[in-house]
Design a binder for these strands. Structure first.
Lengths: 227, 227
DNA sequence: CGAGTATCTTGACATTCGTCAAGGGATAGG
DNA sequence: CCTATCCCTTGACGAATGTCAAGATACTCG
């Protein structure tokens, strides 16, 4: 198992990047690694948090089951992203459930390891605060998107977020499950399908789980357009 | 000016409640008080944060101006609630703008006062983390509401949140500006009007800026119902 | 290779919400 | 007391989305 690769991914996560080498080693030495198959549950809503989580590979989705039985995807975490910091630290129950959206590798850092560290270095607390704050801003952005943009525009922005190029053509790989993407974007799978159909006009072609973008800038213009 | 009342409100804010008396005094001694008229701006998006804010009276709205020029109300803070903790602490620019939704009294605690305190007591950092986390959960709840409930249901939940009783009839006073409420609930004033009209069937009567709820439990059932 | 299942797409229809426009009621100022 | 203005309400219409249903495509297991 390529633990070294995973370690270097973990080192670059927001949670760790700002910490001194010595602290990183401490955390890594107390961390747990685990593979999750697609669909497997990491934790359930209202469970008590005992660790924070860093995604090393694959996608993890955070969701809530609404009283009506619908599933609302709150966010999706990809390689190098961490979640659960604030809850773990306060020994609170998780406000959401977490599930592997694809097969994935996840590192777990026990709460106790963090608490010990914070007692020695207040900078760690600030780092956690910072990552919590990023999540908060991400949610604000989502809220805004949901209110102010059409479905097709949200899809376009989602694709642009997966792009690794600034201009010209680009092909992005999506997670296998389109229900997941639809949920993340606040719509039903049918609407996602229709949005993709509309994006053809903006130069987007869907082939299985790969989206081919003819020109990134054209698509960006589409997002900015009104209606 | 009844500073004593305001002080006791500030003491009970999430930010302070958990702190030892001595620290509270320190913060209060360095705090600024100010009155804002309705419509006045507290700060603008992208401004650098130099203080955190506690609402002592009235309502403050946090909003973003979207690229299209629309205003999206992110959240509304009422008496006893605080905001801006995480930004102030990290010396980041505000991600949202803040404006007095009604005439209001606000206390400002300079960042430096907080930073000094955190250096002496790591518990302060945890407290701030906790309040940041509450905001985060509030946003998750909003996101969920927006995706899974109809306009009328969102309005009903908003009214229930203003209720001080658990059962029976209840009258709640709303802010004067219905545009604000509509924004907070992610809809246009016209839709808010229609939602109110629908809620008549659930025993809600609107009289100017007071909503009379015939039976709180009936309204709560309405929220739980599908469609 | 073939059948069965799951997932994605497409269509028709009902509902909801935004937009535009007109009307009604309250308040302030003359 | 009257009038002008502002805000809220109501109606009509169109666009977007959810729902239901059917068909298409891909994947799995025998």
């Amino acid at each position: 198992m390529p633990h070294e690769i995973h370690k270097s991914i973990a080192r670059n996560a927001v949670l760790m990047k700002a910490l001194p080498e010595q602290h990183i080693e401490t955390l890594l030495s107390r961390a747990l690694w685990r593979h999750y198959d697609r669909g497997e549950t990491l934790f359930l809503q209202d469970e008590e948090a005992t660790a924070i989580h860093i995604v090393l590979d694959g996608w993890v989705k955070l969701y809530r089951v609404t009283p009506n039985g619908n599933e609302a995807v709150v966010s999706v975490f990809k390689r190098g992203e961490s979640f659960g910091e604030a809850v773990a630290l306060r020994n609170l129950p998780y406000p959401v459930s977490a599930e592997a959206a694809t097969g994935c590798e996840v590192m777990h850092i026990p709460t106790s390891a963090l608490v010990d560290l914070i007692r020695h270095d207040s900078e760690v607390g600030l780092t956690i605060l910072s990552s919590t704050f990023s999540h908060l801003q991400g949610l604000v952005a989502q809220l805004e998107q949901l209110k102010a943009q059409t479905g097709a525009q949200r899809v376009a922005e989602f694709l642009l977020g997966l792009c690794d190029r600034e201009t010209g053509p680009c092909a992005v790989k999506m997670p296998y499950d389109k229900v997941l993407i639809a949920g993340r974007l606040g719509m039903k799978p049918e609407s996602l399908s229709r949005s993709f159909a509309r994006l053809k006009a903006a130069g987007v072609k869907i082939e299985k789980d790969v989206a081919r973008i003819a020109d990134v800038e054209t698509l960006r213009d589409y997002v900015e357009e009104e209606h």
